[in-house]
Design a protein around this nucleic acid. Structure first.
Length: 882
RNA sequence: GGGCGAUUAGCUCAGUUGGUAGAGCGUUCCGUUCACAUCGGAGAGGUCACUGGUUCGAGUCCAGUAUCGCCCACCA
């Protein structure tokens, strides 16, 4: 016998272990078409946050759904080595012991990162298990493991030989805290209150005149190599081509005319620092200006600046420059201004545009077929609106800077000869060979120190995890994958790059569908992130309410294209739903509603049983359709409402008289049907609330059916194969409406809940009389009635209600307030009168009649008739009150 | 500055092809009926942000306005 309440904590861990140990999640069944999802690999440093919980719940739902539909499901798990994040974690740990990365050297450091990974990395995979994720853990991969590293090298070498990877010296986003380049995507612009300084630059040949330039970054003036004005700016026309004397540095720099200069901004003249500003870099190229790099890797001023400034930290230098300019009388004014400052998203300090040699991917070339794939529908986004975002970014894509000055990551397979010639090969031996061929002798080669952007290896994830570059059977079977489930925040970082790499290297898109789910935000609508410290811990919620409840909540809230704000109350509600289901099962168990092997729903004969089969067919169809369309919230809502609102509230209640009654064929059928229906509910719920569904199946079904195996491997309900029963549905709808009306009337009349009263039903036709007889006991029980009769006289002081063609009379002689009852009926008449007037307005409208579709017009006519009939009966009822 | 999205019940949110608004929670009233008080029954509560348009008919389509949010660009 089941306990009174369901103990999720006790059950969930046990079931998960049993699933995993029995190989329940493993791919490879040969009798089904493959269905593949690759997990967005969480960072090895990561722990499960609410966004992961949502992301993986949705993937798990799809996998479990398709598994039950007979597909050979591979949910490919794994983790990302998360270059910067992981290096930071280990560096921080070392710092606690007073050790600096550079003190111990690269090899030792990398060894310690691996040690860290072995000890404390990958906690998230345990947490995903706690959530119920049905990944094939045998196949877990790590972006730094041997196979994937080999794939990375292979791709790098190939793209290099194809000219799609190249080395270039240009401005990059430099994170001076982490001392590495980062990509455009890793830069986060923050609005800050800053100041705008107006400096006077004297003309070289006429120091009495000066040009005023405005800047938010005074320290960079030491690297200025020009002043630009707009070619059509009259104010400055006469000084174009002349020189100004750059103060503090005492250098002559030219005034150039360039469209970049905006006469509306600042003074209209702008200082040009080609080595430290992306726009100025372009201006510098156009005018062939020198580029003076004034910063070192820590963003301190270097030896290119005059002596007093050398070695100063960049913000110290700013103060000094401003003070010195002011002392020289060259500071015209200072304004405060709010402006954006680019920060590194990991390091958290302002980045510097810095001139360095880096490796780049020619993203524009790779993007073309990737754009095409979405345009021609080989890949579609759900919801579709994200395709715009994708196109927008892809069509304006910039070269992707992939080198990072870190130690943790895939070291770039490039070796330099003595004269700087670069040899890109998969290993040193091949590089040597290439060098030999080039130089005609053995030379000393030095390997590039840099590692690759983490996202470079993630871009290969859909095929590298399947064994590429080897032609493995798994690669042949499971690529391309089916659906990629992700948040929109990594469409650029990851999705776009997987598409580019997949098409280029596999000659096939990596997936046909990208499902973009909402982002879970905090109460302020901010994106949750570790750096902001506003993360929620879903594991606490799992501890309190169970994984099923957390999963179901996220699913119910996963409407397309919306942000999710999670509320704990909601989770509590769905925890209660689990309890409700549990108790319904307990009721079934107590009433002998045990599964009957081979029982077919077509065998149902009573209206009640035929009705629940009919309803089940409808909900199974709804849930299936919703999941096929990725409308997860609809799937959750439909199962919830059916289970609670239809099965528990009505089917079980209406079945009680039968189940409490004499043994016989009707009872036996109802017991079997009830068990069957509950079993179907468990099937429908399995993807959403897998633990409680599996537990109930194991406790109540498996032993009796004597079938081995898990619920999660059973066949998904086939809605189309279930018999429908519209007549039974009409009958039960009426009975339910009748009970509802009586209950409402009782409440309104303040009839004590325990009081059993009589009911007279007038005007019922033979069919309805039949229905009343058939469900007599249930109606009396649920509406708390003593006796139900038909076609009786209306006693004085009776409450009356009209339900379609029948008038229901509740004799309440001593309870009822005659005037109140008159008012009540009058109010109903008023409302109906209003409805009728509205309908007649429509039906009296010639263009409505001629233009609205026939069925809409007909519907209106029927509604009018019904309302009019009800009005007539209400009037009679009113008349009877005297 | 460019783009996207949101605005529906006290709160959090659904509402797929246009046909007189729904859920959960909260709230009010009633309830110790033998599955469940993590429950049962009943109710109150919305001029669907605003303005205009298309249409027989608009929460739903179009345009504009307001407010909020996000993404991209912008260190004069």
């Amino acid at each position: 016998m089941l306990d009174k309440t369901y103990d999720a904590q006790a059950v969930e861990a046990r079931i998960y272990d049993a699933w995993e140990q029995s190989g329940a999640f493993e791919c490879g069944r040969s009798d089904g078409r493959p269905y593949t999802i690759v997990i967005p690999p969480p960072n090895v440093t990561g722990s499960l946050h609410i966004g992961h919980a949502l992301n993986n719940t949705l993937q798990d739902i799809l996998c479990r759904f398709e598994r039950m539909r007979g597909r050979d499901v591979l949910w490919q798990p794994g983790m990302d080595h998360a270059g910067i994040a992981t290096q930071m974690v280990v560096e921080r740990q070392l710092a606690e012991q007073g050790i600096k990365r550079r003190d111990i050297g690269r090899d030792d450091f990398v060894r310690r990162v691996w040690e860290w990974k072995a000890q404390s990395g990958g906690r998230i995979t345990t947490q995903l298990r706690r959530l119920g994720a049905s990944c094939d853990w045998r196949r877990e991969r790590f972006t730094m493991d041997d196979g994937l590293s080999r794939a990375v090298l292979k791709v790098f070498v190939r793209l290099h030989k194809e000219g799609l990877i190249y080395r270039d010296k240009r401005l990059v986003n430099w994170d001076p805290k982490l001392r590495t380049a980062i990509s455009d995507l890793e830069v986060e612009n923050r609005e800050v209150d800053g100041q705008l300084w107006y400096f006077r630059y004297p003309l070289a040949d006429d120091p009495s005149r000066h040009v005023v330039v405005a800047t938010t970054r005074p320290e960079t003036m030491l690297g200025d190599t020009a002043v630009a004005v707009h070619p059509e700016d009259e104010r400055y026309r006469d000084i174009v081509g002349r020189d100004v004397l750059l103060p503090l540095a005492d250098r002559r720099i030219p005034v150039v005319a360039d469209e970049h200069s905006d006469p509306e901004k600042g003074s209209g003249a702008v200082k040009i620092t080609p080595a430290h500003d992306f726009n100025d870099f372009e201006v510098g190229r156009r005018h062939d200006l020198p580029m003076i790099n004034i910063l070192d890797a820590d963003a301190n001023l270097n030896d290119a600046v005059p002596e007093p400034y050398r070695g100063l930290e960049r913000y110290e230098a700013r103060k000094r420059v401003v003070a010195d300019m002011e002392a020289l009388g060259l500071l015209e004014k200072v304004e405060t201004q709010r402006h954006a400052v680019p920060y590194g998203d990991r390091g958290g300090v302002p980045i510097e545009p810095w001139l360095t040699d880096q490796w780049y991917v020619d993203a524009a070339t790779l993007a073309r077929p990737a754009i095409d794939a979405v345009e021609r529908g080989a890949i579609s986004f759900v919801p579709r609106t994200w395709e715009k975002t994708y196109f927008e970014w892809m069509r304006n894509i910039e070269p992707w800077c992939i080198s990072r000055q870190l130690w943790w990551g895939h070291q770039i397979p490039a070796w330099y000869g003595p004269d700087g010639t670069v040899f890109v090969e998969e290993d040193e031996a091949q590089a040597q060979e290439a060098a030999q061929a080039h130089y005609g002798r053995d030379v000393e080669l030095v390997r590039d120190e840099d590692v690759l952007d983490t996202w470079f290896s993630s871009a290969l994830w859909p095929f590298s995890t399947l064994g590429w570059p080897d032609r493995t059977p798994e690669l042949a079977r499971y690529y391309k994958t089916d659906v990629l489930v992700t948040g929109f925040d990594i469409i650029f970082f990851w999705v776009a790059r997987m598409v580019m790499m997949g098409i280029h290297l596999m000659e096939e898109v990596p997936f046909h569908t990208v499902y973009v789910h909402a982002l879970v935000r905090d109460e302020k609508g901010q994106k949750m992130s570790k750096s902001k410290g506003n993360v929620m811990d879903p594991l606490d919620l799992v501890e309190s309410y169970g994984a099923d409840a957390v999963r179901f909540t996220l699913t119910a809230m996963a409407a397309q294209g919306r942000d999710i704000k999670l509320s704990e109350q909601r989770i509590e509600g769905y925890r209660n739903f689990g309890t409700k289901l549990w108790n319904a099962a307990r009721f079934a168990e107590m009433n002998g509603c045990l599964p009957v092997a081979g029982w077919q729903p077509a065998a149902a004969t009573t209206t009640l049983n035929r009705w629940i089969v009919d309803r089940l067919a409808a909900v199974a169809a709804d849930v299936t359709e919703a999941l096929e369309a990725y409308r997860f919230n609809d799937a959750a809502l439909a199962t919830y409402q059916f289970t609670w609102g239809t099965f528990c509230d009505w089917y079980l209640e209406l079945a009680k008289p039968v189940l409490n009654g004499e043994d016989g064929p009707e009872k036996a059928e109802t017991q079997a049907c009830c068990a069957w229906a509950l079993g179907q509910i468990l099937h429908l719920l399995q993807p959403l609330m897998p633990f409680v569904a599996e537990e109930l199946w194991a406790r109540l079904y498996r032993p009796i059916l004597q079938e081995e195996g898990w619920l999660m491997h059973r066949a998904w309900p086939d809605a189309a194969a279930l018999p429908r029963a519209p007549q039974a549905a009409a009958e039960l709808d009426w009975v339910i409406a009748l009970i509802g009306e009586v209950r409402a009337l009782r409440a309104e009349m303040n009839v004590p809940a325990a009081a059993r009263i009589d009911m007279i039903v007038n005007g019922a036709d033979a069919q309805r009389q039949d229905w009343l007889t058939r469900h007599d006991e249930a109606i009396r029980r649920l509406a708390r009635l003593e006796q139900v009769t038909t076609d009786g006289p209306v006693p004085s002081g009776a409450a009356q209600l009209v339900l379609g063609e029948v008038t229901v009379v509740l004799p309440l002689a001593n309870v009822i307030d005659l005037e109140q009852e008159k008012r009540r009926l009058g109010k109903q008449l008023d409302k109906l009168g209003g409805d009728i007037a509205k309908i007649e307005g429509k039906l009296g409208n010639a263009s409505f009649l001629s233009r609205a579709p026939e069925h809409v017009v007909e519907e209106q006519r029927e509604q009018r008739e019904q309302a009019q009939a009800t009005v007539a009966r209400l009037r009679q009822a009113l008349a009877r009150l005297g």
